[in-house]
Design a protein around this nucleic acid. Structure first.
Lengths: 256, 256
DNA sequence: TTGCTCCTCACGTCACGTGAGGTGGC
DNA sequence: TTGCTCCTCACGTCACGTGAGGTGGC
């Protein structure tokens, strides 16, 4: 440690034997070392310490550095508390005998997505209700673009708040990246904003998706997070001939 | 990031172009990447992740790994909270217009010290009371060792709880490291146990020491720590001809 | 022919810890 | 002569990020 501090010029030995190179420290240096260690124990980097150690700095400089450090520590505490709750959420999910493959919930901030979309009502959330509505809406979107439409990317779906009778308004669209596009009639352009969301990637047929929904909702509750807004489904890869290879991402927006 | 994971064998591309070396990933790999990222976000190392990623591990293994991580995180939270309080204590000391040179309080666990010591009463804590008692006790210790005593190290002093009239029992001794020694009569062998303590190094005459005491007590209070046991004074370097070069360390034991 | 994307090294980050190989004074 | 302490490189840690220099396909 002392060799390291010598090398960085933070604590130069009082004397160095010219023949052997032995470092010799004086009693007067103990206070300097002590201060160095004190600052290091606050989590300051040696570079920062180097700035305030020798040229005795103003109280204002010290205060500024400590305030900065205070803010960093406070942020880190918040992050680590959230991390701890996420670990707990995974542990509880394991104890609950996870139905869906576990340990794959990621909290992330999504990118905004611009989609051409159409909407329509369904009688409920079940696959049997939603599937036919998709089959009706998707052609609507494609037709709205005419001959020279943009190249369509990933399919995306989301749902409005369900009515009292359980019916929901379904939205289906396609990512168009940054291409220009002016869809007609029922179809329209929508930009899904960036959100912080709990996300899961589901591989397999859509029949299972309700289990994934349940698991994700349970995970969010036990992680101390709060749902804020409607879920999104991203169809990264859907080949109708191989439903077991479907790759779907579920995103549930979180408060904050 | 993907290159790094490929190199570590955590996520091998589905296909690599033999001519160009271009990495190609399949949709089926998205779930694996997602799980990897999920585990990384919990703060697990890539090495740990490597152990549970491919060979699908038992729930017990996963639970063990998460429990371990949980404990690490909890410890880290406690440490960081204490660190934050220390930063705050320094900030408050700065605002209070620190009398003694600041930012040099270190919380550390001391080594045990074995000393030959003698004790005697003083009328109070002031330098004027303590000084003469030292002058009387030190020769007592030296005489107790006879001709071939151990080589004496650093001088150490500590104090018993003061009586109602303000008088205190003063202890003075010398570090004998690991040498054997059988002192006679009033002097005796004492081992000061290892303690967690808030410590300050004071450079200069002992007249100032009461200010250092005050500052240290204030710092401890505002750092959220608690005093536990009597202070110690370590006289690292005392040359009577140069009192301004005295190097004294003050140690105040803390709870925990 | 010009961009563009992706490739492979190789080095930097942060605060040391840990050998390897060597040496002066007891 | 044998230990002992201290010395100087040099490399490893951890998860990538960042150039430098190069290349195949549009």
């Amino acid at each position: 440690m002392l060799r390291h501090y010598d090398e960085l010029g933070l604590l130069t030995p009082e004397r160095v034997d010219p023949a052997t190179g032995y470092r010799g420290y004086g009693f007067a240096q103990l206070a300097g070392l002590h201060r160095l260690v004190a600052l290091r124990d606050l989590g300051l980097s040696l570079q920062q310490i180097g700035k305030v150690l020798p040229e005795n700095p103003t109280v204002e400089q010290l205060r500024g550095m400590l305030r900065l450090r205070r803010a960093e520590l406070a942020d880190q505490l918040i992050d680590d508390e959230a991390r701890l709750r996420r670990v707990d959420a995974h542990l509880r999910a394991l104890d609950g005998g996870a139905v869906v493959s576990n340990l794959n919930v990621v909290v992330k901030t999504t990118e905004p997505i611009t989609v051409v979309e159409a909407q329509g009502p369904a009688d409920g959330f079940g696959h049997e209700h939603i599937g036919p509505v998709f089959d009706r809406l998707v052609p609507q979107v494609l037709e709205s673009l005419g001959e020279h439409g943009p190249r369509l990317g990933m399919r995306v779906a989301w749902y409005e708040e369900p009515a009292d009778d359980g019916s929901v308004v379904v939205h289906v669209g396609f990512d168009i990246r940054d291409q220009d596009c002016t869809p007609v009639r029922p179809a329209r352009l929508t930009t899904l904003p960036a959100v912080r969301a709990a996300t899961v990637v589901h591989t397999g047929p859509m029949d299972d998706i309700s289990l994934v929904y349940e698991a994700l909702v349970g995970w969010i509750e036990s992680s101390g997070e709060q749902l804020a807004g409607r879920s999104r489904e991203l169809y990264h890869h859907h080949d109708d001939d191989h439903p077991d290879q479907h790759v779907t991402e579920l995103q549930m927006p979180l408060a904050n």
